[in-house]
Design a protein around this nucleic acid. Structure first.
Length: 274
DNA sequence: ACAAATACCTGTAAGC
DNA sequence: TGCTTACAGGTATTTG
């Protein structure tokens, strides 16, 4: 599923391929992708004629900066994909809900089988994202800031890492991986970590996010995440524990176990992680 | 203020 | 083989 490394990979690709291009026309399939609009025609009017000036990211949200001081906010949620078709004549994949015909003849397409993803146009300040905490890549360079996120919290550690209002960008995959690297169980209470454990976790999270970006993201067995050209990332092959319950721990060979924490499955090594 | 539960979807895999 | 069920998961919203 798209988390920070996957969205960051996409962002970098978009910068390279779309900056300077203008949207000639916008075509909507399923209106659920633009569900913030009472009148979907408004989304079409707001995007047609706009030029892509740049691409930013906050957590898992992609922020396409448009001409006219406007920002197109895109969230892929679980199954959303942004795909670039070299020409509008290319066959259109199933579950393609939004199509932007661009000034060089290519077409940017939003494909989303589970339809949880969405997009909308707003001001550059994007007030709809005010509830988000600091981006993970930012807060992970700040020891005290990261420690403050966990301090005193009764929530399960994994739940705290997934809470976007505290740290934006971490999802289930990278939370599992970071807890393993830090040798801390995801079921622990966030506030129960010692100073040393907190510091290990901060470094581990930074490590796995950097690894994920370097590998162009994680593509799991379901093939949900792919880049602009439909290629998967290779980090899934490097996962230490995520989606590997029942397999031997890469460190001690004990059997990895799956449990449910914060209404989400979590995998950890009962021997290495305390 | 914080924490937990639920709704939203559909494709895929596992189980019978 | 064919059907049913479980599961995957990010966020907004509701409930406690």
């Amino acid at each position: 599923m798209p988390e920070l490394p996957e969205v960051e990979t996409l962002r970098r690709d978009l910068v390279g391929s779309l900056r300077g291009l203008t949207i000639l026309s916008t075509t909507l399939g399923r209106l659920r992708s633009v569900r913030r609009y009472d009148d979907p025609q408004r989304f079409i009017d707001e995007t047609e004629g706009a030029t892509f000036l740049g691409f930013d990211r906050h957590g898992k949200y992609l922020l396409a900066r448009l001409s006219g001081e406007r920002t197109l906010v895109i969230h892929l949620r679980m199954s959303g994909q942004l795909r670039l078709a070299p020409s509008a004549d290319e066959p259109v994949a199933a579950h393609t809900h939004v199509r932007f015909l661009l000034s060089n003849g290519s077409e940017l397409r939003f494909v989303d089988p589970r339809t949880f993803g969405e997009m909308w146009v707003t001001t550059n300040e994007a007030p709809e994202l005010r509830h988000l905490g600091r981006d993970a890549l930012d807060i992970l360079d700040d020891r005290a800031g990261f420690a403050a996120v966990l301090a005193g919290r009764q929530m399960a550690l994994k739940g705290a890492l997934l809470d976007q209002s505290w740290i934006a960008g971490v999802g289930s995959i990278y939370a599992d991986e970071a807890c393993f690297v830090a040798r801390v169980r995801p079921t622990r209470t966030a506030g129960s970590l010692s100073r040393a454990e907190t510091e290990r976790l901060r470094a581990a999270l930074r490590l796995v996010l950097d690894e994920g970006i370097a590998a162009r993201g994680s593509t799991l067995g379901d093939g949900q995440y792919v880049d602009l050209w439909g290629r998967g990332g290779s980090y899934g092959d490097a996962h230490r524990v995520h989606a590997r319950s029942g397999s031997p721990c890469p460190a001690c060979r004990a059997t990895l176990v799956r449990t449910v924490v914060a209404q989400r499955s979590a995998v950890y090594c009962p021997t290495c992680q305390r």
